[in-house]
């Protein structure tokens, strides 16, 4: 499997939100405006790529060596939680602009199942380090693509004449379902 097909596959075919249904919480929660959706997407990209590298190293260096594969979930959660904290502190000091832009989304990611899901999937697919990075980047960009597209639609929905009982979340859920069906079209893509 070459890197390009992993990359495109992660963005479109196996889109985290619309094909694997991971990370639905931020997908619905922070998608009211394109601007905030993009902020969330960038934050997720940042954390996903970093955390998958570190979880990969933890898997190889600690879990596999001592035969502790069954501790994978709890170990990865530990890594992600600590990493997000660290990144937050680091950004606050070194790049206040980026910290402001990411805002509340950064700590939110700690509990995002997409980040943990990706870390576990990388191991399950038996990727090497380079493939892991490419896959993570692709998955995160796929998440960003989905949430930004969704936010764009929701912005327009605010202006649309939606029946009273469907206003707000109901129409958002229907939209998400339709988007998911649209993304199913990529399932036939063979690279």
């Amino acid at each position: 499997m070459n890197l390009f097909s992993i990359f495109v596959g992660a963005i479109l075919v196996n889109n985290f939100v619309l094909a694997k249904f991971l990370g639905i919480c931020p997908f619905l929660g922070v998608s009211k405006k394109v601007e905030t959706a993009l902020g969330m997407g960038i934050a997720v990209t940042f954390v996903m790529t970093l955390s998958s590298i570190i979880t990969y190293l933890v898997q190889i260096a600690i879990l596999n060596r001592f035969g502790l594969e069954y501790l994978q979930t709890i170990a990865f959660i530990l890594v992600i939680a600590a990493l997000v904290q660290f990144v937050e502190m680091f950004l606050k000091k070194s790049s206040p602009g980026l910290y402001e832009a990411l805002g509340v989304y950064l700590p939110l990611i700690t509990t995002n199942c997409a980040v943990l899901g990706l870390a576990i999937l990388n191991i399950q697919s038996e990727y090497n380090l380079i493939q892991t990075i490419v896959n993570s980047l692709g998955a995160a960009l796929g998440f960003t693509l989905a949430i930004v597209l969704f936010a764009g639609i929701r912005e327009r929905l605010d202006l649309a004449d939606v029946p009273e009982s469907l206003k707000g979340f109901p129409i958002a859920l229907i939209t998400a379902g339709l988007m998911s069906i649209a993304f199913m079209g990529f399932a036939g893509l063979s690279i």
Partner: peptide, 17 residues
Amino acid sequence: IAVLALGGLGLLFGIVL
């Protein structure tokens, strides 16, 4: 081993943080 590995990991992250 499990306790040491996970505890060590936690301790390491704690110190780093």
